[in-house]
């Protein structure tokens, strides 16, 4: 899994991607974004390559984003969707991967509810594996599109204060962004109630510079970027939160908090959103909200990865 210069085999997380390589991926992303702005949104780079979308967990947004990215590069793309994945045993994942290999798949894009599933797939597959989100573990393409969006809007990533707020403990987006943002020189604050975060020492052992906060208003004071994460209603049922209303008062991007943000402060959300819980409608449509741009940039980032891995 050691990245070779210019060409890497798998993208499972950003933990093994250097700042230089991230930089290069973002450069390629900019070129791909240019392709997508043309009238004919297609180049022949991956003609004849077989890409399989293996989605063990439904995600319309990410699946379509990968599909459009593969098509824009002229690859053949096939969708495979397995439902009820939580009861699906690995035997079937391993078997499926081996079958796809026998069928001639070159690249597998895998989305799975179980952390680590892409490593298992990679272990049994001779081609390339791209992680499209695995359990609470990682979502590297989301982190890359976030980095691209931040850099495009702010001109840089280094030295920015980025506040990630929400269900950090259960978030693959938070983890991959931690790798990417810290590697690119940003200062990251994780903000959540204690039950959705866990002990600070557990985070600092891996990401020594990260700031852990339970107080959103303090964390917001000098934020350049605020990234809100979705709160699932199950967290309340599991006793992790007293109520969604209280959560919203303490941790949501409300109109009042919007007032206090700097005009340049970016508002981000990986989607899907729970409007009125972690983010209020006013924040979604604010001039410094870049939530739709994140989605748009996602296609270009995924093109860049596919191109760099197989182009």
């Amino acid at each position: 899994m050691t990245p070779e210069p210019g060409r890497r085999r798998h993208v499972i997380d950003l933990d093994d991607v250097s700042a230089e390589e991230i930089e290069a991926i973002l450069e390629t992303t900019a070129s791909m974004k240019e392709v997508l702005s043309r009238e004919i949104k297609q180049v022949p780079a991956l003609r004849g390559r077989n890409v399989v979308n293996m989605f063990y967990e439904e995600s319309t947004r990410t699946r379509i984003s990968f599909e459009l990215a593969a098509r824009a590069l002229s690859a053949n793309i096939v969708n495979f969707t397995a439902r009820g994945s939580s009861v699906e045993k690995g035997e079937s994942l391993v078997d499926t991967v081996r079958t796809l290999q026998a069928l001639g798949a070159d690249i597998i894009v895998i989305r799975h509810s179980q952390a680590g599933a892409p490593y298992l797939a990679a272990h049994h597959f001779r081609g390339a594996v791209i992680n499209a989100g695995d359990g609470r573990h990682a979502h590297p393409t989301q982190a890359l599109l976030d980095l691209f969006t931040i850099r495009e809007r702010r001109g840089q990533i280094r030295d920015l204060n980025v506040v990630i707020v929400g269900d950090i403990l259960h978030s693959r987006v938070a983890r991959s962004n931690l790798w990417g943002l810290t590697r690119m020189g940003a200062r990251v604050t994780l903000c959540a109630p204690p039950t959705l975060l866990g002990p600070a020492a557990y985070w600092r052992a891996t990401w020594p510079e990260v700031v852990i906060s339970h107080h959103f208003d303090t964390a917001l004071a000098d934020a350049d970027v605020v990234m809100a994460l979705r709160i699932q209603k199950e967290r309340m049922q599991a006793g992790l939160l007293p109520s969604l209303r209280e959560y919203s008062r303490a941790y949501a991007l409300t109109p009042e908090r919007l007032e206090r943000l700097g005009a340049q402060t970016l508002i981000m959300h990986p989607g899907p959103m729970n409007e009125g819980v972690e983010i209020w409608p006013e924040a979604v449509v604010a001039p410094n909200a870049v939530i739709e741009e994140q989605v748009t940039n996602g296609v270009a980032v995924r093109m860049a990865l596919l191109y760099r891995m197989a182009g």
């Binding site: 952390a115 693959r172 052992a205």
Partner: peptide, 15 residues
């Protein structure tokens, strides 16, 4: 649960 709760479970996103 999947593993010991601590530094590595936090990094790997395992319960």
């Amino acid at each position: 649960w999947a593993m010991h709760e601590g530094v590595v479970s936090t990094r790997l996103g395992l319960p």
